[in-house]
Design a binder for these strands. Structure first.
Lengths: 246, 246
DNA sequence: GCAGTCCTTTACACAACCTTTACGTTGGCT
DNA sequence: AGCCAACGTAAAGGTTGTGTAAAGGACTGC
């Protein structure tokens, strides 16, 4: 028998963001529960691997906090099995300095990691970063305007071309991706982390300057035709293409 | 997030693109259902081989997602039997690193493969790539202008001849096909993958340089008569015949 | 068989590209 | 002011994709 799925309608705002935590440390999960509920998240905690895996696989959660040191089923195993079914974002919780787990975890498809002990504030910040990025990605999957204009910049995504004052820019594939992202979010700050993951396809590492170089090169190319059109830097936050009058 | 999603419009009144998924993993089919419906596709899932085969044979679907590991009837068997009746495009879903299934599948006429676990984003991208290519093929089967001119190049498809500054080029069948494709899409980037599938009739493999050689030979032949008329390379993207003034 | 034609593979050179390095500058902080 | 982390960018380094000659196969017609 053929099953046809109809899409459950998602009301904006009606649905809370649900977070699942898989960690055997009950006291810790209670602490985290308090903080996340204060921030308006729906929170669920389980203390065993298999149980957590089942819940995570249900795709009922927008994010999973996964402890690596778990009794019974190892956290990395949980992650590996989860990844067979779901791309639900996972934030790993590792013992301090456990470099190996961290690397393996990221390779298995974790979205971020956080070393224990962590401050609740930092946890919330990481969670927000992941969720914001997921939303960016989903936005990118939506059909997008094939052409748009920001000040003197004109984007033609069918031709993969960006023009400044009607002069086509000669951009590399990466430069094009970065500039397109900035244009599609003109007026918003785009963080370096987001740019790196979406355009370069890798997490931003400490002392990684390659994104800065791409921005530098894009600026140089734009400046050939228009000295006024500038990518703004917001120190510590990211980059911004100003929308509207200069 | 906005609830109302606009569909990527094809022709007015054209029916929706229907996709059939044959996979025993119910949770996975539900996840895929959500994503594809968000993208405006009509989606149907079945969990058994024979049932899927029947549906696929009905030609009611523009594309079939086919899991290789199926209980009852093996995915490769389904594919083989489907190919006796239909040329409906098939995207195989294989276990990671299952090289053998992949190769056999492509030989049996699958259009692409995707290793599990995959990200919904990647799945959508692959689907779009296949559908775009299918559209290109159908476009080619339509009656097309029997002659057209791009800069100094003149195509006479009745004679299967292409002239540069009125000098007929001596092209092999493959070279003619490639150049015709580029001319009919002058001004657009044509990916190496598309060129390979449409002109050479095979998927582009890693380290496969034969397309490069054909391009090289075509360039040489064109250059005999006109040094200015050039096939442009867009690194990592494909080739392009510039339309209009040089 | 053999020659001819065509497609593909191999091999090497090169160019484009991305990243890293290194050093200079800026801007927020105490 | 002085410090320090973040940023700008030129130059060097490493990687990858492309150009192309030449060799290797596959096929055809004689």
């Amino acid at each position: 028998m053929a099953l046809s799925f109809t899409l459950a309608k998602k009301q904006p705002g009606a649905e809370m963001t649900s977070i699942l935590m898989i960690d055997d440390d009950v006291a810790l999960t209670q602490l985290v529960a308090e903080y996340l509920q204060l921030d308006g998240y729906q929170f669920t905690a389980v203390h065993q691997g298999p149980e957590g895996l089942e819940l995570a696989k249900s795709n009922a959660f927008q994010l999973v906090l996964l402890d690596i040191m778990l009794p019974g089923m190892d956290g990395l195993t949980v992650l590996k099995q989860l990844r067979q079914h779901s791309y639900c974002p996972v934030l790993m919780l590792t013992a301090r300095g456990d470099e190996i787990d961290r690397v393996v975890g990221l390779e298995l498809g974790a979205d971020d990691y956080l070393a224990k002990p962590f401050s609740p504030r930092e946890l919330v910040a990481r969670i927000k970063a992941i969720l914001r990025r997921v939303e960016l990605v989903q936005q990118q999957q939506q059909p997008q305007a094939s052409s748009l204009q920001v000040n003197q910049l004109k984007l033609d995504s069918a031709k993969r071309q960006i023009c400044v004052l009607d002069n086509p820019l000669v951009l590399t594939a990466t430069e094009y991706q970065i500039l397109e992202l900035l244009m599609r979010h003109a007026g918003d700050v785009v963080s370096k982390e987001d740019l790196s993951q979406l355009a370069l396809g890798k997490r931003l590492q400490l002392y990684d300057r390659s994104l800065d170089m791409h921005i530098s090169n894009i600026r140089k190319k734009i400046a050939q035709y228009d000295e006024g059109e500038k990518i703004q830097t917001l120190r510590g936050l990211g980059y911004l293409l100003l929308q509207g009058e200069n």
